[in-house]
């Protein structure tokens, strides 16, 4: 595993997410909740059609079969926050790295926009800023920007950070109060707003956490686990009820 970046030592946390596909209603609230929280720009029609839209969380549909034997499955896909991430290994400037708490970070100011990490990511969950999108938009539409999260410039790659700014805030608060982070204190935007409560988030190293318990569920699986990426986003498969 890679050397952690910077001077910080591991605090023993290992953040992970569990998504219960049986509870997921396919509504896509997670996508927009993430956009609001993380200052993700909208893209207009032209760029949308060139597949230049950015969606750190995306609900991917998979339709199989022919009428009337058709099924569509919906799978919300954020960055899988791999424990063995392929993307960090190819970065020539150390702009993307696995941090001590298991979050795959992206340093925008260091990124040179080569997009090797995008090519390396088997989940295609890293996104390139083809423009300075916010600058191109009417100024009024930047008023709702979240002041906790920086805007990204043209030419850099971005991705889901597990709402890392929230972790920083929670840590600051804990430090002020001279205590450890409480279980459940650090939450992410997609989880908070999920209408059917299908997204769980927490410390996989804490055996008492809900995510650790669910990760051991018989329905648990990881996407493309066979590649050896060791994702920390864990899915719970839909149960079969019909014949």
């Amino acid at each position: 595993m890679e050397q952690p970046h910077g001077e910080k030592k591991s605090t023993g946390h290992r953040w992970g997410m569990v998504i219960d596909l049986d509870k997921c209603s396919g509504c896509g609230a997670c996508e927009v909740a993430c956009m609001v929280e993380n200052n993700i720009p909208f893209v207009e029609k032209g760029d949308y059609q060139r597949s230049r839209s950015i969606s750190w969380m995306k609900v991917v549909p998979e339709t199989e079969g022919t009428f009337p034997e058709v099924r569509t499955k919906f799978m919300p896909q954020p960055c899988m926050q791999c424990d063995n991430p392929p993307c960090t290994k190819v970065c020539p400037v150390h702009a993307t790295y696995l941090n001590p708490e298991g979050i795959v970070a992206q340093v925008y100011w260091r990124c040179i926009g080569c997009r090797l990490c995008m090519a390396a990511c088997p989940y295609t969950v890293k996104y390139f800023n083809w423009h300075n999108f916010q600058q191109a938009q009417p100024a009024a539409m930047t008023q709702y920007a979240n002041p906790d999260v920086s805007l990204r410039d043209k030419g850099v790659v971005e991705k889901c950070t597990f709402c890392h700014h929230r972790l920083m805030k929670v840590k600051d608060q804990a430090r002020l109060e001279n205590r450890e982070i409480r279980p459940g204190e650090y939450t992410v935007a997609c989880q908070d707003n999920c209408p059917s409560k299908a997204i769980f988030f927490g410390d996989l190293n804490d055996p008492h956490s809900e995510v650790a318990r669910l990760a051991d569920n018989l329905r648990a699986f990881r996407l493309m686990d066979e590649l050896g990426t060791q994702p920390k986003v864990i899915y719970l498969a839909e149960r079969k009820r019909h014949d």
Binding site: A29, E31, V32, A33, V36, N193, C194, P195, K197
Partner: peptide
């Protein structure tokens, strides 16, 4: 109960 759909979340736009 804390949930909100895409429409609600986009309303600041």
């Amino acid at each position: 109960q804390g949930g909100l759909c895409p429409k609600g979340l986009a309303s600041l736009q």
